[in-house]
């Protein structure tokens, strides 16, 4: 028993099949950022970061004393109190206010210096990977030399000789991070240069600059996003370390690392004084690292 079929010409049938199978172009799979909510780790990290960003933005409107105002009366009992929720430091300055205002500094200096390091590192890596030959040799050797330095040693020598300032910290981050970024970008570039779409660009007589910036650089984005987050966390640690070593943003600006350093001699008597800024720093770094890990995991699932 077969059901009856409407008689159709072969041409009709073929046309029907073509119409039904008409060019299906898949919907785009959601981008990395759109899928972010599916990673709990990434979201936890993002929340920590956003918390500190919010705190930094709201610093001027929060009902807090000035971060540099000294409350001499509180110096005798620097622990937490109604007037100073997290206590005061050795000079009687409100710890909470200094942490809140310190967030502004760290959230400004760290991203600015990492972005600057990226600009330099990407340029170096693209040139080395794209040009090859002696350009590659020169840039790679230079990177090797700088990367041979233990990072902290490099920072200490650099900042100690040129002096501590926000600008010099940015320069130090560029000097120490750009070679590492350039290595990553060079590696990716070497892979992309061989791709056919780069050959196609050559066959259109595109300039070297076009090929590096328009054809290659956008494709480095994926692997670099994770590194960017990790580097933000790492730079935050570095800025804190410099502050702790007395080479950070000069006082009286509230610098988290500097706050820990100032409170360390009092650790035996008032341990909380050093703990609060330390915890603030840890939570921000943790945010960056969690976000990096989540992003990395999402990227691998592709």
């Amino acid at each position: 028993m077969k059901p009856p079929f409407p008689a159709r010409s072969a041409a009709d049938a073929a046309a029907g099949a073509v119409a039904r199978a008409a060019e299906q172009i898949d919907r785009p799979s959601p981008s990395l950022l759109a899928r972010l909510p599916s990673s709990r780790i990434a979201m936890a990290g993002l929340c920590l970061i956003l918390f500190w960003v919010l705190v930094a933005l709201l610093a001027p409107v929060l009902p807090l004393p000035s971060p540099t105002a000294q409350d001499y009366l509180a110096m005798g009992h620097p622990g937490p109190s109604a007037a100073h929720l997290l206590g005061v430091d050795t000079l009687g300055r409100d710890t909470l206010a200094r942490i809140v205002w310190g967030a502004r500094i760290v959230l400004l200096v760290a991203p600015v210096s990492v972005v600057a390091a990226y600009a330099v590192g990407c340029a170096m890596g693209l040139l080395a990977g794209y040009c090859g030959g002696w350009v590659d040799l020169l840039i790679s050797r230079l990177a090797d030399i700088i990367l041979a330095f233990p990072v902290v040693v490099l920072y200490v020598i650099l900042i100690a000789s040129v002096g501590a300032s926000a600008l010099n910290i940015v320069v130090a981050v560029i000097l120490s991070s750009a070679p590492a970024i350039s290595r990553i970008v060079r590696g990716i570039t070497l892979g992309i240069v061989r791709k056919d779409f780069v050959a196609a660009a050559h066959l259109r007589r595109e300039s070297a600059l076009h090929i590096m910036l328009i054809e290659i650089l956008p494709n480095c984005r994926g692997p670099l996003i994770t590194d960017f987050c990790l580097r933000l966390g790492y730079t935050t640690i570095m800025i804190g370390t410099l502050g702790f070593l007395g080479l950070g943003i000069p006082p009286p600006a509230p610098d988290w690392g500097g706050m820990v350093q100032e409170a360390t001699p009092m650790l035996i008597v008032f341990p909380l004084m050093a703990l609060f800024p330390a915890l603030a720093l840890i939570s921000l770094v943790l945010g960056f690292n969690l976000l990096a890990d989540g992003l990395n995991e999402l990227a691998q699932k592709d």
């Binding site: 791709k195 056919d196 779409f197 050959a199 196609a200 066959l203 007589r205 956008p218 494709n219």
Partner: peptide, 20 residues
């Protein structure tokens, strides 16, 4: 001369820039 000699490559996955 450049426009006169063009090429179609083997690997469809590498022939187009995924970013554009």
């Amino acid at each position: 001369e450049v426009a006169a000699i063009q090429m179609v490559f083997q690997n469809p996955d590498g022939t187009l820039n995924p970013s554009h």
